[in-house]
Amino acid sequence: MSHTAHIPSHRKPRRSASKLAVRAGVAGGVLSTLAMAGTASASPSAEPVAETTLEMPVLNLDLAGDVSSAVTVAAENTRLAAVEGELTAQEESARTGAAAEAKQAKEEAQKKADAEKAEKAEKTAKEEAARKAEAERSSRSSSERTTLKSTAAPQGTGTVSAPATGSAAAIVNFARAQVGKAYVMGGTGPSSFDCSGLVQAAYRQAGISLPRMSQAQSSAGTSVSLNALQPGDILYWGSKGSAYHVAIYVGGGKFVGAQNPSTGIVERNLSYDKPTGAVRVL
């Protein structure tokens, strides 16, 4: 085959970028060789140089198609990477939000549990104090009760045995009507009372407004002797102004009071539990 023969040209499948670079390098080398040959033929020479014709190999390169394909692939990869990044960010945001909500819910549940625990502890403490007070009253010696009976004997005559009238009758009748109902700490009626709640509600029947707590009720009105009680007088246990229990004297040497959770509202003789003192509001 002649060295000047043409290289047949036929289309081949697209080649990779590395193959394209090799072919481009070959073409550049051929062009460089031709340029040097042209320079040599242009310079003067004593001897004629035989003219040689070289044909440049035909490079059938579909560069535009390959570049377009590469750009398309790169753009698609960039788009997919952006979508994946956005999805990752959304997932992370969702996880962060869920964790924050869970933490807040846990804190609120803990606060609620602490509040319920504190309320229960307070209620238990009050009930325990009431039980201790009742136990203390029940444990009084028989000698003290005997002494109380002897000192209370005069109460069977005079003003002590006089029937209640007017406002006193309204107070006494209301108090007796509550006998048998439950004792509940903080109760103010109508189905349950504590000691000061019962006294306050009874006096309300007579149009008289009393303080809510037993300490203040023991300071209301005028102090009276236990030997000169009248129906409607307020009995108290403990020191005046700081009493821990109150009840209503209903006449005949008896009182009505909301004692404790185990007994509820009862009517008892003064000998059952001697009060410390009494005040008269009417």
Rank of each mutant, 00 (worst) to 15 (best):
M56C: 11
E128L: 13
A17D: 11
A74I: 07
S142L: 10
E101G: 14
S271N: 09
V49A: 04
E55C: 07
Y203F: 09
V250Y: 12
G25K: 05
V58L: 06
E134W: 02
Y272H: 14
Q215D: 03
E76Q: 06
S150T: 10
V71C: 11
M1V: 07
H6A: 04
Q90H: 07
V179G: 06
G221I: 01
Y183R: 02
N173K: 03
Q215A: 06
G252C: 00
K132V: 13
R14G: 11
V160E: 04
S142Q: 04
A27S: 07
G85D: 10
G38C: 10
S68Q: 15
T96D: 11
T157D: 09
G197R: 07
A133N: 05
I7Q: 06
E101F: 09
R137N: 15
S161Q: 07
Q155S: 12
G38V: 04
Q90S: 00
T72D: 06
S143Y: 15
S167L: 02
R23T: 14
A100N: 03
A115P: 00
V256S: 08
E76Y: 14
A113E: 09
D114H: 04
Q155D: 07
S141K: 02
A94F: 02
E84M: 09
V246W: 01
G264I: 08
L226Y: 14
L210N: 01
V83C: 06
S9W: 12
P211G: 04
P13Y: 12
V49C: 10
K19F: 14
P48T: 09
E122G: 06
K120I: 10
S138I: 11
G264N: 01
E127W: 10
Y244G: 03
S93T: 09
D194V: 06
V160W: 09
F255P: 04
K111E: 07
Q155K: 15
S93G: 00
N173R: 02
L20F: 05
A202S: 03
A278T: 14
S18I: 07
V58K: 10
A168W: 08
E134V: 08
G180D: 03
G166A: 08
A168E: 03
Q110M: 02
G156R: 12
K103Y: 13
P154H: 06
R176K: 02
Q155E: 12
T72Y: 10
T147N: 00
K132D: 13
K12R: 15
S143Q: 14
F174R: 08
T146F: 05
P48G: 13
A258G: 11
Q217V: 02
G257A: 08
Y183K: 00
G28P: 00
W237D: 08
R176D: 05
G166R: 02
V246R: 00
G257Y: 01
P13N: 13
L87G: 03
Q215C: 05
I265N: 01
I7P: 13
T159H: 01
Y249E: 05
A40C: 15
S69V: 15
V266H: 02
L235F: 08
V281N: 02
A17H: 15
M213P: 08
G166I: 06
G28Q: 15
G29R: 11
R23M: 15
A109W: 11
A17K: 13
Q110C: 06
T88H: 06
S150R: 13
T188C: 01
A5F: 15
